[in-house]
Amino acid sequence: MSTINTQIDLEYLDSMSGGDTEMRNTLLHMLAEELPKEKDVLAEAAERGDLPAIFQASHSLKSTLAYTGNTEAIRLNEGIEASSRHGLWTAEDQEQLKVLFERMDFLLVALRDLTSE
């Protein structure tokens, strides 16, 4: 039976690994490794106000977040990707970014727990 976790959709991950523990662990470790890196890249791009870099970072993050199954983080990142793609950046986007980082912090804690199990 899969563990219920409010941040990571484990059922989704289990379906991807199809009961293959090694694959499941590989995916979780890759997520735990990639997510903080990608968060840092996005944060640095946002700090510089570099919209093309924000777009590049959020585009890459899109694939990664899809593997977490966290729909809220995916949705927030979508908005950021769309705004940066069109060269539009407002206070609302900045606020979305802040919320996204908060959600990602929760995700990272959840991932740490899962990868140390």
Partner: peptide, 14 residues
Amino acid sequence: RTPMNAIMGLSNVI
């Protein structure tokens, strides 16, 4: 399509 890539791709692998 992106998450389905993983679902379909890895299901096939399995």
